[in-house]
């Protein structure tokens, strides 16, 4: 009986030792947040800055913001071994309502990562009515305009060429052709953006996704394109080109 007990004790001790050895190779996890912020050529924009016609776009018009909502999807961290972790399938940011400004308490092993995210949905994910919370936010694109969901709704006022204050609605969607007809087609105009060597550690536990709004208007002539842009294929393609430089990850 004593021998059996001794064998059991020894076995337990060996197993315990093995576990300790494994623990020594495990990298420490750290909790971190992802913040989503907006700026106009470096000047921070929050809802406190709404409705002030204070911002000059590349074409020279002064503009304001009254609504700013956008969608970031497939937020992915890829470690140096090439292993990817999708930390959020999609994040809906509503600056006016202070929704989606932060994704909190993500846990990953410390280390350096390539971080990627996408503005808008890919074609595969841009499925009409697939996301009840986005339906509830009236974020849909009508089927006759291609269906799926908006990528961004940026609205406000600007001073036009004759000095009048006019509204604009810069809405980006999957670029569609032949809208309001049964032959409507659409083209993926989501934008993938990436940053490499983003280090997550106890000293760096906040990742910032920044959108420079000025880039959306560089170049852009609001006098020619200020409203009714969802069904304008060429406008959507130009928005896609401008948006390539709108996002950074730090």
């Amino acid at each position: 009986m004593k021998k059996i007990a001794l064998i059991l004790f020894a076995a337990i001790a060996v197993i315990a030792c093995d576990k300790n050895d494994d623990n020594e190779t495990v990298v420490e996890n750290v909790n971190f947040d992802i913040n989503f912020s907006q700026n106009f050529n470096g000047t921070s924009i929050t809802n406190a800055n709404f409705n002030n016609v204070d911002y000059t776009v590349a074409n020279g018009e002064m503009i304001s913001f009254s609504r700013m909502r956008y969608l970031i999807t497939d937020i992915t961290f890829t470690n140096q071994a090439g292993v990817s972790t999708v930390v959020d399938e999609y994040n809906f940011v509503d600056v006016g309502e202070e929704i989606g400004a932060t994704i909190e308490n993500i846990s990953l092993p410390v280390g350096a990562y390539t971080v990627s995210a996408r503005f808008g949905f890919t074609e595969a994910d841009n499925t009409t009515n697939a996301y009840p919370d986005l339906n509830n936010a009236s974020w849909n694109v009508p089927e006759p305009m291609g269906g799926g969901y908006h990528y961004m709704q940026l609205e406000g006022q600007y001073i036009n060429d004759i000095g009048a204050t006019v509204g604009y609605a810069y809405h980006t969607i999957s670029a569609a052709q032949d809208v309001m007809t049964p032959e409507v087609t659409r083209e993926d105009t989501s934008i993938l953006f990436t940053a490499s060597n983003i280090v997550i550690s106890n000293d760096n536990n906040i990742i910032n996704v920044k959108m420079n709004i000025a880039e959306w208007f560089n170049p852009w002539n609001l006098n020619e394109r200020d409203n009714g842009l969802m069904g304008n294929y060429d406008a959507q393609i130009d928005m896609n080109i401008n948006g390539q430089t709108a996002f950074t990850i730090e």
């Binding site: 609205e155 406000g156 006022q157 609605a169 409203n227 009714g228």
Partner: peptide, 8 residues
């Protein structure tokens, strides 16, 4: 002054 931009 506060008219919605969607009012075209």
């Amino acid at each position: 002054e506060t008219i919605d931009p969607l009012m075209k």
